[in-house]
């Protein structure tokens, strides 16, 4: 029953495309994330990652794979900037190299 329903049907790639769009938005939002308010990056990176995984599992689409990778990069960079931001506002010593990165 299940297999016959699958045959000849086009798989839905909406999640794959939305994942890619969300991951790009997350990366763009890293620019204002130079301040402490880095969470907008996370607001798109987390759903982008999940939807990419879901699409990857269902459709094996390369778009989904790209969405997953970009979302993951945005998430890691977002966490990185968060840590630096917290160090800055709590008055901790932040190495110059890290501060330059944050300024980007």
């Amino acid at each position: 029953m299940d297999n016959q329903n699958v045959a000849g049907q086009k798989k839905d790639k909406t999640f794959a495309y939305v994942s890619l769009v969300f991951s790009i938005l997350a990366l763009i939002l890293l620019i204002p994330a130079a301040t402490i308010t880095m969470n907008p990056t996370m607001a798109f990176a987390v759903p982008g990652f999940f939807m990419g995984l879901e699409a990857q599992r269902e459709t094996k689409s390369p778009v989904a794979k790209l969405g997953v990778i970009l979302s993951l990069i945005a998430f890691v960079l977002g966490v990185f900037m968060l840590i630096i931001g917290i160090m800055v506002i709590s008055g901790a010593e932040v190495p110059d190299g890290l501060m330059m990165f944050r300024g980007l």
């Binding site: 029953m1 299940d2 297999n3 329903n5 699958v6 049907q9 086009k10 798989k11 839905d12 909406t14 999640f15 939305v18 269902e58």
Partner: peptide
Amino acid sequence: MGTAAVSKKSTGKVPMLIM
């Protein structure tokens, strides 16, 4: 159980969810 396979197809439910 047979209804489970419906989720795998292009039913338009994912665009509705995103919307």
